[in-house]
Design a binder for these strands. Structure first.
Lengths: 153, 153
DNA sequence: CTTGGTGCAAACATTTTGCAGCACA
DNA sequence: TGTGCTGCAAAATGTTTGCACCAAG
């Protein structure tokens, strides 16, 4: 296996490479195909804001000249979630938001109420805290998400 | 006013009394009316599960013989939110969930993944924690919500 | 060449809205 | 007695699905 076929790009350490590999391997595992549409969606994803909505993704794809139908975007988002590449973030009821999940340690965010900016944060203490609280109820934590709504100080 | 008409129940210290008062005063402040429909919705709310969805509320009302249209339920939910009596809780993308908010100190919950039970919890340390994290970004926290997904241990 | 994928449009589910008649303050 | 409220049905929104044709493996 000294020669790589040309459809495997040269190794470069960008976020895209591992994501692409993860996605392809997930698809292969399920007997699914890696299509140009799916590649375009992944491609667009990685250059988008940390947090995005489906229609933002669709708009971004249109702007960059990709022509993929809504239906395919929705179908692909499901696959990307299964593959652990993106995850849902809920912080308003109107629209589902997603963010890249692969390699991400937390789902904790600060939402700036002035600018609507979203910051991903990490609070190491939270793990112990959730463990302690759950223990009091005879439970053990699997995961958590914390959303802080903050204003500029 | 020595005699109460029969539709006003004898005074009892149930959660309903202050909620009703809060709602009526909120409505009065806005020049809105306290109608039988709104009373029935509030009435049903207080005997429901801590966390509910709109269609559960609608079903519960039907079962108890109340006849209020969907449109009115949705309109009233907005008013109840404004009044601080209920609040939205987002933990799955399909349906908006609500819970009684009045007098509640936190929006933090544990979702038991085995039983789908929702426990409201209080973690006093969280306040300081969120303050510290926000400070690092030049922000100050207004509110937060923490959702822990846990299994039985 | 087989199986899964795509775009399109229709179907869906949930929530909102316009309107004519009704009822609370 | 006037303004806000209600129910209904239509509209709007966001997401899913059925189908005929297409393409990846």
């Amino acid at each position: 296996m000294a020669e790589q076929p040309e459809n495997i790009p040269p190794i470069e350490f960008t976020p895209f490479e591992p994501l692409c590999a993860v996605f392809r391997s997930h698809l292969r595992d399920l007997g699914h195909k890696y299509t140009p549409e799916r590649a375009q969606i992944l491609d667009t994803l990685v250059v988008m804001d940390d947090l995005f909505q489906v229609d933002q993704l669709i708009d971004a794809m249109k702007e960059s000249g990709h022509r993929v139908s809504k239906a395919t975007v929705y179908r692909t988002i499901k696959l990307l979630q299964e593959a652990g590449i993106i995850q849902q973030v809920l912080f308003d009821a109107e629209h589902a938001h997603y963010q890249l999940a692969y390699g991400r340690k937390t789902r904790d965010i600060i939402v700036c109420v002035d600018t609507n900016e979203i910051l991903s944060i990490e609070i190491p203490e939270l793990r112990a805290l959730t463990e302690r609280v759950c223990e009091q109820h005879g439970l053990s934590p699997e995961s958590h998400r914390l959303q802080i709504f903050a204003k500029r100080s």
